[in-house]
Amino acid sequence: MTDNKVIIDVKGLYKTFDGKKMILQGINCQINKGEKIVIIGPSGGGKSTFLRCLNLLEKPTYGEIWVNGKLITPVDPYLHFDVIKASLTYGKMFEKKRAENPIISDEDLSNEIIAEIKENDLLNEKREGRAFKDLVKDIYLNNYIQIDLARQKMGMVFQHFNLFPHMTVKENITFAPVSLKLKTPEEAAKRADELLERVGLLEKADAYPSQLSGGQKQRIAIVRALAMDPEVMLFDEPTSALDPEMVGEVLDLIKQLASEGMTMIVVTHEMGFAREVAERVLFISEGLILEEAPPEQFFNSPKNPRLVQFLQKVL
């Protein structure tokens, strides 16, 4: 389906909350292995929601997300022409339009109808007949991956750290790999020590999160995600809840990971960090990617007027 350079493939992603407010309105985005993406944009523009959709902490309303060539969302019929063509709605429209217009070629007619169906959201998934249903099921069964499995390879770091307060630092780090039987307790403990050593917090191994500073907590949260040996790391405003003097230590760790080739997607307000680390910067506002470019071009010659306005305010 996708070539194996792509690690995350987002197709036609929409998200509404309670069917009212449109948070994301049609995001398409491919992220390659090893790529460092930074997402910036105004609050409420949908950047965090987008990130949280990538590991399904938010369920997309429409659209598909593929991780490592595997589908983690349900099949979105609007994204598959063959599925639309198998629907009863398509069949009926085809006959009707054919009668109205005998000259048009099959292909043109078909494209017209597909466009119309997509435009007006005409499919009713429960009433599109057996062929439609079977095809959707087929695509799903051939491609899906259970979300818990996909999440094991996608580390996530939160704004508010979300360390487990009833566990020691070391237990925080080893709990998931041991509980999921990915590592023996000894292996997990050894890995935890290595990672703690690396971030300079080995002496905090037996401390509880409440005994750590914000910067230390966030570094432990990063280590906890790394202990799962993820293929991609998602950072949701990792420094926004930190005191200013602690931002540096966390950003340094993220930079270090970046330099080692970790694929990462970072939602942040730190423009300096974006310039330095990103290979591609996305500007998400009003639920859309309004601009995406390498940082040089993104910051020096922005095209989208909304971005120009945004950069004027923050820089």
């Binding site: 590991n55 902490l57 818990d148 499995l149 979300n162 360390l163 998931a176 509980s179 999921l180």
Partner: peptide
């Protein structure tokens, strides 16, 4: 209990039961 705790657990790949 903060919903972030559930999110952190699930984001590590733990089941909702665990």
């Amino acid at each position: 209990v903060d919903i972030g705790q559930t999110e952190a657990g699930r984001s590590l790949g733990l089941s909702s039961f665990t």
